[in-house]
Simulated scan of single mutants.
Amino acid sequence: MTIDQYISGMRMRTLALSVAPVWIGTVAGVGIVRDRAATSSAPRCAVLHGGASCVPDTARVVAVAVLCLLVAVLLQVAANFVNDYADGIRGTDAHRSARAIAATLDDDLDTPADRMEVPPVRLVASGVPPKHVLAAAIANAALACACGVAVVIITGYWWFVLVGALCLAAGWGYVGGRHPYGYIGLGEPSVFVFFGLVATLGTTHAIAGALDAAAWVGATAIGLVAVSVLCVNNLRDLETDREVGKRTWAVRMGRTWGTVCTIALVAIVMLGAAAAWTTTSVLGERLAHLSVLNAFLGILGALCALLTGWFASLDIAKRKYMRAMRSLGLLALATALAFNGFALMV
């Protein structure tokens, strides 16, 4: 496998879905720690022990946040390679070989806009030995495990080992194994759980040793963005998924209702950003931590969320799925930015 092939297999454009939940979880954790420090005489956390009864210093928060980010990104990269491997050996990605896509570009598509809508190539389908792709998945999963062990050592939360094992099992079971759950319509709920709740709430708990309502709201919002990305991906591949028996939500609902459902998910996130903006504007100076910086970040993030969500919805309706996924990646980051501002003002 060449470096270019490895980078292609990482699916870099999707990694915002790993960055955003850790960003949100970190902000929520910092908010909890800030309030704890202001309202109690809790001691500083020990070097290798955290919890809800102590206040971590900046170095500890940064170390845990960076390690959580590495865990999330590496696990997603590993899952991307597993998907390429499993779908490749099943023949699901036969239409995604370099030769097939080159033929499509040469024969059917004339404008740059049309060419941008061609799905990217897949490694196994293009002739890369499956064992090389599987090895890349295992290597990234091993690195994620190493970072996860570091988080466990720093925080003392040994039950994170079980969470990590569940994440690994979910990454493999999505399309791997004899009965992949992604082929029976459970991929969308699993994305909400692992890219939304687990990644966000796990980061918050690792930093602060506790959770609050803000963390749950942020986890839900970013989970909905992740589900919408998978729904768009499945709408793009609806015909080929149906042919190989992959029963995603898009296949089960059909293109029309699948499109409506996906746009509704995006709309919920947009409404959440607008509601946060409205609420904090009404509360005004009664907010405990109102500052120019936090207000600026919140408003900027909300505006970006509304714009990217609007453009993504239009692209979904027009079946411009590749462009919609790029907009949804930006929506994930905009959601995190808005949360960064609004959550720290409360």
Rank of each mutant, 00 (worst) to 15 (best):
T155M: 05
L230S: 08
L330M: 12
P189H: 01
A317R: 14
V292L: 15
G173K: 09
T200R: 01
H205Q: 14
N233D: 06
V62T: 08
D4L: 14
A38F: 00
G29R: 04
V27F: 03
S291G: 06
G127M: 13
K318G: 02
F81G: 04
I316Q: 07
S291T: 13
W216F: 13
T278Y: 10
T262Q: 06
A165S: 04
F339A: 03
A273P: 06
L287T: 01
G88E: 09
M270T: 07
S228P: 06
S97R: 05
V260P: 08
D106N: 11
A302S: 15
L69W: 00
V82N: 05
Y6L: 11
G258P: 10
G196E: 11
M1I: 13
M253E: 13
S327V: 00
A305D: 13
L75W: 05
A65T: 02
E117Y: 08
A42Y: 12
A267Q: 14
A210C: 04
C54I: 06
L67F: 05
G173T: 07
T58W: 07
R236C: 03
A65P: 03
A332T: 12
H179Q: 04
K318D: 12
T256S: 14
S41W: 00
L300C: 09
W23L: 15
V133P: 10
R242G: 12
A146F: 05
L69K: 01
I138Y: 10
K131S: 14
A46R: 09
G341T: 06
S291P: 08
L265M: 12
A16C: 04
A20D: 02
A28I: 00
T240G: 09
G31S: 13
T278L: 12
A199V: 09
L201K: 07
G25F: 01
A170Y: 15
D87N: 14
A72Q: 08
N140R: 02
L314T: 11
W216Y: 11
A78M: 04
F81V: 02
T335S: 11
M253P: 07
A98Q: 15
A288T: 05
A98V: 14
V346A: 08
L293V: 03
A302V: 07
G258E: 09
V77G: 06
P129G: 07
A170P: 14
R286K: 05
K131F: 10
A273F: 02
N233Y: 03
E243A: 15
A264E: 08
I316D: 03
A267C: 14
A28W: 00
R178A: 15
I207N: 02
D87K: 12
E239H: 13
V175A: 15
F160N: 03
F195A: 08
L74W: 00
G218K: 01
S228V: 11
I263K: 14
D107G: 13
C45N: 10
S126E: 06
R247M: 13
A79P: 06
W310P: 01
A78R: 06
A139D: 02
L105P: 00
